[in-house]
């Protein structure tokens, strides 16, 4: 691995926080359906005060939004710390490698390599699915670009990108036995950190982490557990039937159903905080990743009430960089 003088792969804030052994918090930004950068900044402002890095999703659920690479470029310009999500669904290997270089040039240091939800999950199911790479091939290619300074073809890069590389894991869907081994494969391919799918099933997650520890993976990769608030039992029902890969146990749906309407939102938040507190106790968990789709205003409350402030954590060098929120983007 190519590490710099201080021993960092990328030196991103996320990497520094994790390497220092502190509990990390990342959060997902709701990408705008807009050409106005201000919408990105408004969404980022709220999140940036309660997390260490902000994920820019790549048309998740196969719904088109502002591209992740552009969101990341806007975020780095303002001194924010993005996690650039790259999915294999829409672009072939040529486009992906070009975007990785472009993102690095724009100051992106964290990359999350994903398979991607299928086109049929979105509102344009007629689209062509690409999947030229799978997530593991993508991950390894990104690592080759960083560590070997070449494209997949072997052609040399004049300056290789510096990336802290991430991958996803979903311990909550079959084949359960294989999930820890698939994680091992991702570590072998180059994953430095993992962000999991939504965790609502603590028992299942404990079992997964037990296997992960048996394999010694928790010492090789930082695992951030996906969490998020549910608005109501209807939202839970929608998520577990319509959003690919989300598993929510009946007990949680039931708990929301029994809660009187005006308190449902609060209850959803409580559940989320309880889950955070429980996963924090599990050996090998390095942080959380908050996904609060259309409830971004709740992220701050959740992080605060879970006792995870102040954020972002101070990490030295990365803090020296200018951080100020552009109130108004100059319009022409």
């Amino acid at each position: 691995m190519s590490e710099n003088r201080e021993g960092f792969l990328a030196g991103s804030r996320l990497e520094r926080v994790l390497r220092s052994g502190r509990f990390a918090v990342t959060a997902e930004l709701n990408p705008p359906d807009s050409a106005d950068p201000q919408e990105v900044y408004d969404a980022a402002l709220v999140l940036s005060q309660v997390c260490d890095a902000i994920n820019a999703t790549d048309a998740s659920g196969a719904h088109c939004h502002m591209s992740s690479v552009a969101i990341c470029a806007l975020l780095t310009r303002a001194g924010y710390e993005p996690v650039y999500q790259v999915s294999c669904r829409d672009r072939n290997r040529i486009a992906i490698q070009g975007d990785l270089l472009g993102a690095a040039a724009m100051g992106v240091r964290n990359v999350l390599c994903l398979t991607g939800d299928d086109v049929t999950a979105g509102d344009q199911p007629e689209a062509k699915r690409v999947f030229d790479f799978d997530s593991i091939q993508l991950l390894r290619t990104a690592r080759i670009m960083r560590d070997r300074g070449v494209f997949l073809s072997g052609r040399k890069l004049t300056t290789p990108p510096r990336f802290f590389l991430g991958a996803a894991s979903n311990p909550f869907v079959p084949p359960y036995d294989w999930r820890p081994l698939r994680l091992a494969k991702k570590v072998e391919a180059g994953a430095n950190f993992i962000q999991t799918q939504y965790c609502f099933d603590i028992a299942r997650f404990r079992e997964f982490m037990r296997r992960v520890r048996d394999l010694g993976l928790h010492e090789k990769v930082y695992i951030l557990v996906g969490v998020g608030p549910l608005r109501s039992e209807k939202a839970a029902e929608f998520m577990r039937t319509k959003v690919p890969g989300v598993h929510i146990p009946d007990a949680i749906v039931e708990r929301l159903r029994k809660t009187p309407k005006p308190r449902k939102r609060e209850e959803g938040k409580r559940i989320c905080i309880e889950i955070i507190q429980q996963v924090r106790e599990i050996e090998g968990v390095a942080g959380i990743h908050v996904m609060a789709y259309r409830q971004e205003e709740l992220v701050a409350e959740i992080v605060e009430e879970a006792g995870l402030l102040p954020r972002p954590l101070r990490v030295g060098a990365a803090d020296e960089r200018r951080r100020e929120h552009p109130r108004k983007w100059p319009r022409r």
Binding site: C88, T115, F131, D134, V173
Partner: peptide, 12 residues
């Protein structure tokens, strides 16, 4: 359908 060669996606 996703032509994956290295194992299942997270959508199972």
């Amino acid at each position: 359908p996703k032509n994956l060669r290295n194992g299942p996606c997270g959508g199972v």
